[in-house]
Amino acid sequence: MWDILKKVYGNRLFWPLVALSLIVIFNIIFVNDFLKIEYKDGYLFGRIIDILNRAAPLMIMAIGMTLVIATGGTDLSVGTVAAISGAAVCVVLGGNFNGVPNFPFIVAIVVALVAATIAGAWNGFLVAKLGIQPVVATLILYVAGRGIAQMITGGQIVTVYYKPFAYLGGFLPGLPVPFSIVIFAAVLVLTIIVIKKTALGLLIESIGVNSTGSRFSGINVVKIKFLVYAFCGFCAGISGLIISSMIKAADGNNAGDAYELDAILSVALGGNSTCGGRFSIGASLIGALIVQSITTTLYALGVSSQVLPLIKAIVVILICLIQSAEFRNKIMGLFIGERSGHSEKAAV
């Protein structure tokens, strides 16, 4: 029995799940009707559904970010890449009041995803081929990306009246759950198939542990890093489609704002090492749910958008302390030491 408990306790998913469970319990106690799910007009509604829907873009970004961080890098540009993707799809569809798109919907999606993938490939080129530090390389697009999105939209907020566009971030007729959840599930399944059914996952971990050693062992480090960053851009592009669909418009200045920080935070809160190496996509997804649950909870409690980042930061610090083995050991040591002191006094 003790061996089973020790195995469960030592699992990397244990403490992220504990943190998520504490947030859920808090919501059940303090947020009205948190567990309530209603079925209206063929669709499911409720706070849990809303969290999953809002978390879908972040979870998709977290998938790509996990692979990038596993190689020992990072990507600060995913939020701006999402803005570029949203700007591209909305401009291609057009803001026509009659709801008739300028080009077919599939063309607009392909253009947006190609633009996002090219942006990710640009990051990969700078990091893998030119050897620029990932923070510096992706910071370039982080700074320039909003300007690119604004250039695409002409500095305007392009509102799309084409009805099917709203399905990406909303409800698809005949589907009871938001379509964004289905999109996320598809990306997750395809990623896991590639990672688990090929040697790519092991190669990524090997590069993250020792990039130089991997290169000398015959692994094409440059190619794999390039593909990983391109895929991260692709994931950000999908997220950008969902984000722009939720507001039915392209907002190059605000779409995807701070998503890069939440994506990195999701990977870290899931227990993945930010130094690279062994990774778990499932852990990152739990981290993304933690981040989105905190945000949704604070809004439900009436916390203003100005104060929300401060409260969110405090909660994240507490969660990090819970997940820190060193902190838990110190607290346990203080507790045991205090009890030992009381026992010695009682014995005297």
Rank of each mutant, 00 (worst) to 15 (best):
L334K: 12
F97R: 04
G64D: 09
H342Q: 14
G276F: 00
I238C: 05
G169S: 06
Y229W: 01
N272Y: 05
P57I: 01
L289E: 09
G145F: 04
K36I: 06
F216C: 15
K225D: 01
V111Q: 12
L13K: 07
T80A: 01
S77R: 02
L76H: 11
G170F: 15
I140Y: 01
L310W: 15
A144F: 03
V111Y: 10
F226W: 02
I29W: 10
C90Q: 13
D33Q: 12
K345M: 02
V291R: 14
S340E: 14
T296R: 05
T153G: 13
Q292C: 14
A119D: 02
V267H: 15
T80K: 01
Q133W: 00
I48G: 15
S211H: 13
I238G: 06
T295E: 13
C232H: 03
Q150F: 04
A144S: 04
L58H: 07
S206K: 02
R146K: 12
S206V: 04
T274M: 05
G174E: 03
L203E: 00
A230G: 02
L298M: 15
R54C: 05
P16F: 02
A288R: 13
G270K: 12
V187Y: 10
P57M: 02
W2G: 12
I140M: 03
P101L: 00
P104C: 10
V110S: 13
M65E: 02
C235N: 02
G10P: 09
K330D: 09
G79W: 08
M151W: 05
F97Q: 07
I238M: 07
A121I: 00
A249G: 06
L202T: 10
I118K: 01
I238W: 04
G174F: 06
L321V: 12
I148N: 05
A149Y: 09
A149W: 06
C320H: 12
F279N: 06
L76M: 10
E344W: 10
I49C: 09
G218H: 14
L20Q: 09
I25E: 00
N254A: 08
P178G: 09
G201E: 04
T71E: 15
P176V: 06
N53H: 06
V187T: 07
Y259S: 06
T297E: 13
H342S: 10
T71K: 03
A313K: 13
L113T: 03
N96T: 03
E260T: 05
L13M: 08
K312N: 14
L93R: 08
G131M: 03
T274Q: 04
A166Y: 06
G147L: 09
E38V: 01
F34L: 13
G95R: 08
F97D: 07
L261V: 10
